[in-house]
C-alpha cells in the first residue's frame, strides 16, 4: 500500500530498555507512516519483542518517548493504549484457550463496546443490545479471517496456523489504527504462510497501519513497504526492502562479517 500521506502514526524516540544490567534496547529511533506495512527484522535477541511490549504497554521503557498520533503513550497501561488504537498479537500464542474462537474475537471488541458490571448483572436492555453488536462484529471478523465455520471450537483445540489467525482476528476486533504482529508466520507451513501474508495485506488495504516482526524473509520482503533492522538493541539500517537486502551492515549482522 502506498502511504495515504506523510503523517507519522507512530514515532519511536530514543527508546532504551534495560533489564537489570542487560541493555535490551538503546536509543532506538524510527517513524511509522500512516497506512504502510513496516517490517522489523533482526537476529534472535535483538530486542524486537521487547520493543513491541513497550509500544503496547506491557512495561514502560527505561528511557525515551513513544508518540502515537502525536501524543506520548509510553507511560500508559496496556488497556489504555488499546483504547487509543494500537492492538497486537503475541509471538507465543496468548489465546484464551478455554474460550471459543468466537468468544476470543468478541473479547477483542472489549476496547470499543463493553457493558458495565451492574448493567450485565441486571440484564438492562442496553447490555443485550451491546452483546448483539459484539456478536455481529465478531462474526464479521471471523468471516474476514476465514474461520466462521469454526466459531464454536475451543481456541486451544485449533491447529497452530488457525490459532495465529484467531489472534489476528482478536486484535482486529478492537478496531485498531495500528496493529503490531509479532511473528505471524512463525511455525506455519507454506500454504498457511501464504494465507497469513494475504491476510496482512488485506488488513492493510482497510487502511490499518501494520507493524510486523517476522523471521520469514520472503514474507517480510514481499509485503513490507519499509523495513527497520535492529541488532543488539540498536537500529542498524532502515529503508525499502531492496535497500535492506543490499545493505552490507545487515548482511554482516545476519551472516557474520567475512573475517
Amino acid at each position: 500500500m502506498n502511504p495515504v500521506n506523510n503523517e507519522n502514526v507512530l514515532e519511536v524516540q530514543g527508546i532504551a530498555m534495560s533489564f537489570g544490567g542487560l541493555m535490551a534496547l538503546s536509543n532506538l529511533n524510527f517513524q511509522v507512516k500512516r497506512g504502510i506495512i513496516k517490517g522489523i527484522i533482526g537476529p534472535n535477541g535483538a530486542g524486537k519483542t521487547t520493543l513491541f511490549n513497550i509500544i503496547t504497554g506491557s512495561f514502560p521503557p527505561t528511557n525515551g518517548t513513544i508518540r502515537f498520533k502525536d501524543r506520548p503513550i509510553e507511560h500508559l497501561k496496556a488497556y489504555k493504549i488499546a483504547e487509543r488504537g494500537i492492538s497486537r498479537t503475541f509471538q507465543t500464542i496468548e489465546l484464551f484457550g478455554n474460550m471459543t474462537v468466537l468468544e476470543n474475537i468478541m473479547l477483542g471488541c472489549h476496547t470499543r463496546i463493553r457493558p458495565s458490571f451492574l448493567a450485565s448483572g441486571f440484564k438492562f436492555p442496553q447490555s443485550g443490545r451491546k452483546e448483539k453488536q459484539i456478536l455481529e462484529r465478531g462474526m464479521r471478523i471471523l468471516k474476514f479471517i476465514g474461520l466462521n465455520d469454526k466459531f464454536n471450537h475451543l481456541a486451544e483445540n485449533l491447529p497452530l496456523g488457525e490459532q495465529k489467525m484467531v489472534e489476528i482476528g482478536r486484535a482486529l476486533a478492537s478496531e485498531p489504527e495500528l496493529i503490531c504482529l509479532d511473528e505471524p508466520a512463525a511455525g506455519l507451513n507454506e500454504t498457511e504462510t501464504h494465507l497469513a501474508s494475504s491476510l496482512i495485506k488485506a488488513i492493510n488495504a482497510k487502511g490499518i497501519t501494520v507493524l510486523l516482526v517476522e523471521h520469514d524473509m520472503r514474507v517480510i520482503m514481499n509485503i513490507s513497504d519499509e523495513i527497520v533492522v535492529i541488532n543488539y538493541g540498536q537500529k542498524i539500517a532502515e529503508g525499502s526492502p531492496e535497500e535492506i537486502q543490499n545493505n552490507p551492515r545487515v548482511i554482516e549482522a545476519y551472516l557474520g562479517s567475512e573475517a
Partner: peptide, 14 residues
C-alpha cells in the same frame, strides 16, 4: 475469564 486465561492478552485487548 480472559484475565484468568492470559493477563497479557486481556490487557492488550483493552
Amino acid at each position: 475469564r480472559a484475565i484468568h486465561a492470559s493477563e497479557p492478552a486481556a490487557g492488550a485487548m483493552g
